[in-house]
């Protein structure tokens, strides 16, 4: 019988510092054991527990798409005890991964529809995974128009910068990048994500919206989406909660009768309307 608490060893192959504040890093992992690599089947939106022996575990969204063969990315902000120590890790170090856990973004529902992605700051990680998944050339035809609105506080706080610039040039999607406040070198859009979204006013017709960002961004984005005509069944959010086990046993990440670790982290607004406002 498998012990579900044992992490699979994974080596850090690459570390990218994503922002100016240097508190967001992307780690690219490879599993030490082939059977772990083959068994780690996931979809965009899922998360895993990153484990540092002696320090503990933290739940982190998977930032890469399963289509990015040979890469397994996690973008981690230095926030608590475990993430602080993870930031001290170096290329070649081995840490542990448990997962994948939770549900994914609703790929079935998105298929054949337009997709609007709204992201803010550091919380763009699983949205990146979703974007990469849809842009993969075998998959691109399964989805109609793809529009991304992504913003951060300042130019230095945008993550995945090179990819953002590439996407901006691509004809495969409509990319809108914004910062709350630019600097002298910033030539692009300025303004809060919800405001920009309102300006662009993408059609809600036949469109699924995926939203992930800081609470304040979500708070102001949802009314805009509503105004644009998105029904709550077609707006999806990815939630965060304090988690430990990741498998629905330790009991702390519930919102009403749903466990974020197994029933989430992705919920539609319609689902959330049915649940207590306790997150």
């Amino acid at each position: 019988m498998n012990n579900p608490y044992i992490p699979m060893p994974a080596r850090i192959e690459k570390i990218t510092t994503e922002n100016e504040a240097r508190d967001i890093k992307t780690f690219d992992f490879s599993f030490v054991n082939n059977e772990d690599k083959d068994g780690f089947l996931f979809l965009p939106g899922q998360f895993a527990e990153l484990s540092l022996l002696g320090f503990g575990e933290c739940p982190i969204g998977i930032a890469s798409s399963p289509t990015e063969v040979g890469h397994l990315l996690f973008t981690v902000k230095r926030t608590g005890f475990v993430t602080k120590h993870l930031h001290r890790a170096e290329v070649g170090d081995t840490i542990g991964i448990r997962g994948p856990f939770g549900n994914s973004y609703p790929l079935d529902l998105m298929e054949g529809k337009n997709v609007l992605i709204v992201g803010g700051g550091f919380a763009f990680t699983t949205l990146r995974a979703t974007t990469m998944y849809m842009l993969e050339h075998n998959n691109r035809g399964r989805f109609k128009e793809l529009t991304i609105v992504y913003g951060a506080r300042s130019p230095g706080e945008l993550i995945y910068k090179q990819e953002l610039w590439d996407w901006e040039k691509s004809t495969d999607l409509n990319m809108f990048i914004t910062v709350d406040k630019g600097d002298e070198r910033w030539k692009r859009r300025e303004g809060f994500v919800p405001t920009v979204l309102e300006d662009i006013a993408p059609s809600s017709q036949d469109t699924v919206a995926l939203v992930c960002g800081p609470p304040v961004m979500i708070k102001f984005t949802l009314p805009v989406l509503q105004k644009l005509g998105f029904p709550p069944e077609r707006i999806f959010l990815s939630l965060e909660m304090r988690m430990k086990c990741g498998i629905g046993m330790c009991g702390r990440c519930n919102i009403g009768h749903k466990y974020v670790c197994v029933d989430g982290p992705v919920f539609s607004c319609a689902q959330l309307d049915e649940l207590p406002q306790e997150y």
Partner: peptide, 16 residues
């Protein structure tokens, strides 16, 4: 049945 998970360390050895 709720539980917490933590690591405990003495030197280089420890337990979860």
């Amino acid at each position: 049945h709720c539980f917490d998970i933590v690591d405990e360390v003495a030197g280089s050895k420890g337990r979860r």
